[in-house]
């Protein structure tokens, strides 16, 4: 079980959190302008990387805040955590 450093509350057990999938997939501002394929790309396609992945997490049983996490999915190392709206760290 991970130990996750919520940017608002500090270190907490993973069981307080909910994973929210890949991060930095912005909802299109003008959905009607998109083709079916472009909309499907936003709606369904996710990378599911083995390795360093940018993810959304929610402190569901805590402050309820969403934040981003950089995690290596091959060994579950959490490399960085940053707030929504903040720039992802460069590696």
């Amino acid at each position: 079980m991970f130990l996750i450093n919520c940017p608002y509350c500090g270190e907490r057990d993973q069981q307080e959190f909910k994973a929210g999938g890949e991060a930095h997939i912005e909802r299109p501002k003008q959905p009607t302008e998109l083709s079916d394929d472009e909309w499907a790309e936003f709606l369904f396609m996710r990378k599911n990387i083995k390795g360093v992945q940018f993810e959304r997490w929610n402190h569901a049983h805590g402050c309820r805040k969403w934040f981003n996490m950089v995690r290596d999915t091959s060994n579950d190392e959490i490399k960085a955590i940053y707030k929504m709206g903040e720039k992802p760290p460069t590696q």
Binding site: G20, E26, R27, R56, N58, A60, R64, K65, W66, M84
Partner: peptide, 13 residues
């Protein structure tokens, strides 16, 4: 509630 919070915090801050 979770879904609405998600949109508020991440898409429409």
């Amino acid at each position: 509630l979770g879904k609405l919070e998600d949109y508020l915090q991440t898409e429409w801050p």
